[in-house]
Design a protein around this nucleic acid. Sequence first.
DNA 1: GAGCAAGTGGAACATCTATTCCACATCGCT
DNA 2: AGCGATGTGGAATAGATGTTCCACTTGCTC
Lengths: 205, 205
Amino acid sequence: MRADAERNRERVLAAARDLFAEQGLDASTNEIARRAGVGVATLFRRFPTRDDLVGAVFADRMSAYVTATDEALADPDPWHGFCGYIERVCRMQADDRGFADVLTLTFPTANALEDDRNRAAEALGVLLDRAKESGQLRQDFTHQDVPLILMANAGVVTATRNAAPDAWKRLVGFLIQAFAAEAAQPLPEPPTPRQMYRALMRLSD
Amino acid sequence: MRADAERNRERVLAAARDLFAEQGLDASTNEIARRAGVGVATLFRRFPTRDDLVGAVFADRMSAYVTATDEALADPDPWHGFCGYIERVCRMQADDRGFADVLTLTFPTANALEDDRNRAAEALGVLLDRAKESGQLRQDFTHQDVPLILMANAGVVTATRNAAPDAWKRLVGFLIQAFAAEAAQPLPEPPTPRQMYRALMRLSD
DNA sequence: GAGCAAGTGGAACATCTATTCCACATCGCT
DNA sequence: AGCGATGTGGAATAGATGTTCCACTTGCTC
């Protein structure tokens, strides 16, 4: 790849990163190209589809997301690790509107991100089991509750990011107290893994 | 108003109600007109701005929202009344995607709805005070937490309505357990009323 | 049943997208 | 320095959208 081409590629990525963070995943390609100081054609040759661009932009953030589970597992206190994980992931959504979209919407993201997502899911299982065994996380908490939290947090973050940027912390505060084993009362059934997968894909049934 | 005009007005309202419920507030006007079996001009003469249409469509649902606080107040058990209120309102969001938008977004709704919203806010204050006095609702629960719940629920409902239509019940289950006085641990500060107002208006600061 | 105000449909306009195309410019190897 | 592959910008296409316009139709009054 020619040096100038590589330079432009980076400029597009930087502009897309900024715009996705500000406006969410539906920032327009023309605007991204304009902000990057390149023509739209340049953008489209490097990233033939929107997914390619989204994938490239969020690749590092996605690996930070995966790393978050690892760091949570490194915490000697299972409950503290679990709470820290939830807070950290929700903060990532609050800090980047585009990333909030990526995390709650599988479909428009590049396949490259799928591997990361799956690895994170695996580590998460261990994190939850450990926190339950320690007796601090309620037994009926399931894997599917995590994307549920992310969807709820995304709703708050989307609505409040300008006017009340810390509002999400309050929601997360409430939720974490609800996840404590001592507070546990019977709950409605969680969605099935298949339902949650399809919800993330925005499919029916 | 001519009889046929009145008939068409009703048809537009019915079509808009259906489409808003299915697709949210951003259903297209052309599609609404098509579904109503009238020309777009007919729609625009009756409802010159989008707000007028939205206001007319959700007027009755909005009064049901106001009525919900009254019914909650009629419940002899303050805590049961409070929980019933939260569930009922979240269910209204789950049943009508457009209404979920209306409740968490002040701006695009007609001014006619503002009065209802304010009346509901007043009754809600009484409901919360009563539940706190009974010792069942945590003391640090504030007025602003209600729209926060609605925003979170809107996030879940939007993502899961097709694939896991009952997922919101699980979120609400968690939240209600967090609202119980006995579970109360210190929490981050709630947004201020002004912040929440501005968040609903999607303004900055 | 005649006349006209009121109402109508759909084409047209203005804007916004994502994406494609191509005449021209530039890079970097020789 | 020269030349071809590589890369470029921005105009153009194609498809949305909300909204306006206007020639035609209809309901209602007299």
